[in-house]
Design a protein around this nucleic acid. Structure first.
Lengths: 348, 348
DNA sequence: AATGATAAATAAAACGATTGCGTAATGAGC
DNA sequence: GCTCATTACGCAATCGTTTTATTTATCATT
């Protein structure tokens, strides 16, 4: 079924049908004609061809708002299932776009699919704008920016780039977490998480150095941000670190949850013998025992801001690249305590 | 940058450029011309307009394979973040599509966005095929089937429909779980999960009836499939059920994990005083304490089969609607035990 | 009844690609 | 040098919409 066929059956011209469909308030054409057209559309379950539509609309991209689709692309290793955090963000974006009754087709796509060079195979994904999440390199984002006409990047702070950025990479979050640990009297805190090119790790190292905490190499345990890796990582940490740390900083909640399990198996009491803190504040972190102390980002707001910024930019409401910082908040729960024998003397 | 402009700059016709780009093995035109065109494409970072492309290709839909995009749509309430199970499935689909080097733009879209009737606002999402997941009604799926040219539905068994179905709705899974409980000597098992229009609940009820288990209304506690709801649900169950059940069946792992927490607060030992079993086998279920006994579906295979079936159908390798059943497997871990004082006498 | 003014409907030209068909160029064979 | 087969390329129609400019219908006014 095409618009033309509908028109023919209704005995009007294609343009009339098009206008009837697209007039925002139901005001176009005589009511009689309008009703006839709508009923024919209904009868056939006609749906306009979006490709044709976007093709045509793409041209008149003047005052026009977005013509149709918005993508969310995740960095390599940031998988929706490995780490629920990203699923939450994606969801928040989805919600927001919807609430603006914004014509949205949210599409996640993994980076691997499109990192191939242009001439290898010309890529398929193309939208009006994209929200890019995760640990990506500048050239990678550049490539994406070329494909999607405009992007906003959510993640670490990248200097001197022409896109909008929403900074929430965990540097500050790590500081908040570490500070909480130190304020509770910890001086020997281990690291469990990604170490390669990971802001949270850098932040940990800087913090440790700056505050004169213990720096044994054995306190650092590299693992990926998922349950399995966190579990085995926690085991390795236990084996390697002597003396045992009084606290461990996990770069993600999923790691912490799995580590919890591992420590329990080793009969280590959390938080009495070992404190645990992490980052993300995924839902489940509040439903394990002990409940995780973690530092969370305002995910809903993150979603809001990301899509608003994107739409704003597409509509050319702003043209210079913006950098927006989001606050981190400490969620005090049960997994952090004062180390045994600690005397309060050291508050940052 | 359009193809025409590239052509102009290269001093060839648009058709030539098109053919150079699209020839599968790099064999079209003289090498000299070909290289010139490619270098101009590179220079400008030209990317073909996918809308135009699909518009044109949609027509010649003969031997042609898919022209570009595949959607994954989730039922209302099946959110990626509420329940990691769906994120895992989505991921599996993504992986599989990718591994077939299939031109895929995976797009999740929540049902709310498109359930509006056609004439309310004409929808935007349109792909070659969609994989539809979750608890949806037949008319809803019908609507989707109209939008996306072909679909495969993953979920409960729906009778007499023209689409392909992959059945994994948990009826059998529930039976497996309940049977395990009964085999361990439980006769009084509570239900925690969705009750409205939910196959798992029906299965629970049928099983209870068929095996003469306790049927107090107080054993049934309705809650949604997320952590918060599971936590409060577990609390309500504790308050309502007298005497306390010896086991509880949770309709999803996330519920069970949250319930675990709630029971611990009530100083109920799992599994010594109360057994817990659930469905999904999300990653984290293996990393809480006690580790959850759960019944899982073969998620990876589910992804494989879903995309293969879809592609197959798009390419008209099969035309009758297929129904594929996926096996459920019991993952025995730590949350189920024999009730106190039980004497083995009753094995199904 | 004739005239404007306004509203309703249409014709036709895009949008940016693909592709069947046709023609020009190339080279081989005699 | 002429023909024929082959290869390389261009023409132009087309996909299903939207939209500008134009024509046609409607209706109140004088």
């Amino acid at each position: 079924m095409t618009l033309k066929e509908i028109a023919a059956e209704a005995g009007v011209s294609p343009s009339t049908v098009s206008r009837i469909i697209n007039s925002p308030d139901d005001s176009f054409a005589r009511k009689e004609v309008r009703d006839r057209v709508w009923s024919i559309i209904q009868k056939h379950g006609y749906i306009p061809n979006q490709n044709a539509r976007k093709l045509k609309l793409g041209q008149s991209g003047g005052t026009q708002t977005i013509s149709g689709s918005l993508a969310v692309v995740l960095g390599r290793g940031e998988n929706l299932d490995d780490n629920p955090f990203f699923a939450q963000v994606a969801r928040a974006i989805e919600q927001e776009a919807l609430s603006l009754s914004f014509p949205v087709s949210l599409s996640y796509s993994i980076f691997a699919a499109i990192k191939s060079t242009i001439n290898a195979n010309l890529p398929d994904i193309q939208t009006d704008g994209a929200i890019v999440l995760g640990r990506l390199t500048k050239p990678a984002i550049d490539l994406l920016a070329r494909r999607h006409k405009t992007i906003v990047y959510v993640g670490r702070n990248i200097l001197d780039v022409p896109w909008d950025q929403i900074i929430c990479d965990g540097y500050e979050a790590t500081q908040v977490a570490m500070k909480h640990l130190v304020n509770n009297g910890h001086k020997r805190v281990a690291y469990l998480g990604e170490t390669e090119n990971e802001t949270r790790f850098t932040a940990y190292q800087n913090f440790v150095a700056m505050h004169g905490l213990d720096t044994d190499r054995s306190l650092i345990c590299s693992c990926q941000h998922n349950g399995e890796s966190g579990y085995t990582g926690a085991g390795k940490l236990l084996a390697a670190a002597h003396p045992i740390p009084t606290a461990v900083y996990c770069a993600a909640d999923v790691i912490a949850i799995a580590a919890l399990r591992r420590f329990r198996e080793a009969r280590i009491k959390i938080p009495q013998q070992l404190s645990l803190i992490s980052i993300d504040n995924i839902e489940l972190s509040g439903y394990v025992s002990p409940m995780l102390t973690t530092v969370g980002m305002p995910i809903i707001e993150l979603g809001n801001i990301a899509v608003k910024t994107l739409i704003d930019r597409i509509n050319k409401r702003h043209t210079i690249p913006m950098k927006i910082y989001l606050p981190n908040t400490l969620i005090r729960r049960e997994s952090v305590a004062t180390p045994h024998g600690y005397v309060e003397d050291y508050i940052i």
